[in-house]
Amino acid sequence: MSTASMTSSRIFRKLVFASCTAGAALLLFRSIPPMAVNHRPYSPPVHRDGQFSNATKEKYRRSFKFSLEPRSYKRRMPQRFWENKRNERGSEFDFVLLPTKPFCNPEHWLLLVVKSAVAHFNERMSLRNVLAKIKSSQLRIIFVLGKDSSANYNAVQESKFYNDIVVGNFEDTYANLTIKTLLSLKFVTRFCRDVKFIASVDDDVVMSISGIINYITALEANKNVVHCGDHLNKAAKVTRKGKWAIQIAKYDTTYYPPYCNGVCYIMSYEAASALHEMSLVTPSDIPIDDALITGILREKARIDLEKMPRGLCEHHSKR
């Protein structure tokens, strides 16, 4: 056999060997099962209308955190509340009647601001008696009312005797409860700047004053918080029907920000002042005062929300 033939035979045998080796390797590779890798991006389960599923809602309820992003889950507010425009309802927040003597001084540590109805004189007397028994110069109480068109009540006489009545330039109706609360913030920021803490309460509340004092004693380190007394509503859905119905034109998103839903909440003067400043440039046409003050305004002012221990303040009906 010639040299050329031997060379060609060797080359052919090498090519055949290489081809067989590659084929065996390919068969071996194909016999290995593929890795179980899911390349599909995760997306939370949603319904057809774009709302989160119940499972996802429950997950967020269990691990709730107070994100301050305007568009985060369950904390979205309509854009008109984020815009800073002068509140056009200024005349309703004027004072018709104020205490005749200087009201607050640096000695006062806790101011109880009570939203009271005109006809609830007995409720006001009950709260006055509670504070009288404590006999603390660090506590002060003020009752905020609206005007009474029936002329069956003389606020001036009660104010002269107790010097703890504020009357605003609006009718004393349940629908004006938001205005009453905003007037309370205005009174605090104008006349009680030396007070350290403010408790906003209803006049039908049963309070543990000593318990509240013990609770807020340790709060001075963190002043940028509103403390809910009875219930912290983390996922309040906007109602479109019934007594608390809100038109979509006023509030076009599904949920309110988390807010204090109950008879009382406590905050520092700094927090109260921040809420008052926000109220001057934010629409106030939401009749649910807790949702507006401790929800919308608090969210806009970037103030945190916490829950107080049970039993510090409750409705009379719960006792």
Rank of each mutant, 00 (worst) to 15 (best):
residue 157 Q to L: 09
residue 130 V to H: 06
residue 174 Y to G: 02
residue 213 I to Y: 12
residue 213 I to R: 10
residue 125 M to S: 13
residue 133 K to A: 15
residue 223 K to N: 08
residue 255 Y to D: 06
residue 169 N to G: 07
residue 212 I to Y: 07
residue 126 S to R: 13
residue 137 S to C: 06
residue 186 K to I: 01
residue 214 N to P: 02
residue 139 L to I: 15
residue 223 K to E: 13
residue 237 K to N: 12
residue 192 C to P: 06
residue 167 V to F: 02
residue 132 A to L: 14
residue 203 D to W: 01
residue 172 D to P: 01
residue 226 V to N: 02
residue 199 A to D: 08
residue 164 D to G: 07
residue 148 D to C: 00
residue 200 S to M: 13
residue 156 V to E: 13
residue 202 D to W: 03
residue 131 L to R: 10
residue 244 W to E: 08
residue 146 G to R: 03
residue 234 K to Q: 12
residue 177 L to Q: 05
residue 126 S to P: 09
residue 125 M to N: 12
residue 136 S to Y: 10
residue 240 R to K: 13
residue 255 Y to V: 12
residue 114 V to E: 06
residue 227 H to E: 01
residue 113 V to C: 13
residue 126 S to V: 07
residue 214 N to M: 09
residue 213 I to N: 09
residue 239 T to K: 11
residue 213 I to A: 11
residue 128 R to M: 11
residue 222 N to D: 07
residue 251 Y to E: 13
residue 116 S to I: 00
residue 121 F to P: 00
residue 166 V to M: 08
residue 127 L to R: 06
residue 172 D to S: 02
residue 235 A to H: 15
residue 223 K to C: 05
residue 258 P to W: 01
residue 117 A to Y: 08
residue 225 V to S: 01
residue 222 N to R: 14
residue 125 M to K: 13
residue 193 R to T: 15
residue 134 I to W: 12
residue 184 S to F: 04
residue 152 N to T: 05
residue 178 T to E: 06
residue 171 E to H: 06
residue 242 G to V: 05
residue 201 V to T: 12
residue 180 K to D: 09
residue 201 V to H: 06
residue 229 G to H: 08
residue 231 H to Y: 15
residue 249 A to G: 00
residue 124 R to T: 02
residue 253 T to L: 10
residue 186 K to P: 04
residue 195 V to S: 10
residue 150 S to N: 08
residue 162 Y to H: 13
residue 175 A to G: 05
residue 180 K to Y: 03
residue 226 V to K: 02
residue 186 K to H: 14
residue 253 T to A: 10
residue 217 T to L: 05
residue 150 S to R: 10
residue 185 L to H: 11
residue 212 I to V: 15
residue 247 Q to P: 00
residue 211 G to W: 03
residue 148 D to Q: 01
residue 193 R to C: 09
residue 257 P to N: 15
residue 166 V to D: 06
residue 138 Q to L: 08
residue 117 A to I: 03
residue 192 C to V: 05
residue 183 L to H: 03
residue 196 K to V: 15
residue 182 L to R: 11
residue 154 N to A: 09
residue 142 I to M: 11
residue 114 V to C: 09
residue 224 N to W: 04
residue 208 S to L: 08
residue 227 H to K: 03
residue 181 T to H: 11
residue 156 V to M: 02
residue 193 R to N: 13
residue 161 F to A: 10
residue 132 A to K: 15
residue 145 L to E: 00
residue 183 L to A: 04
residue 231 H to E: 14
residue 230 D to W: 09
residue 140 R to V: 14
residue 201 V to Y: 01
residue 188 V to N: 06
residue 153 Y to C: 03
residue 181 T to W: 00
residue 145 L to N: 04
residue 190 R to W: 01
residue 176 N to G: 11
residue 116 S to H: 00
residue 129 N to W: 12
residue 116 S to A: 14
residue 178 T to L: 07
residue 242 G to W: 04
residue 137 S to D: 15
residue 138 Q to E: 15
residue 221 A to E: 15
residue 209 I to M: 05
residue 249 A to E: 01
residue 207 M to G: 07
residue 178 T to C: 11
residue 240 R to Y: 10
residue 226 V to G: 07
residue 216 I to T: 10
residue 156 V to N: 03
residue 117 A to G: 03
residue 144 V to M: 08
residue 228 C to S: 10
residue 127 L to C: 06
residue 256 Y to R: 13
residue 242 G to Q: 01
residue 143 F to D: 01
residue 188 V to T: 05
residue 242 G to L: 04
residue 252 D to L: 09
residue 247 Q to A: 12
residue 146 G to A: 02
residue 132 A to R: 14
residue 126 S to L: 10
residue 194 D to S: 15
residue 166 V to R: 05
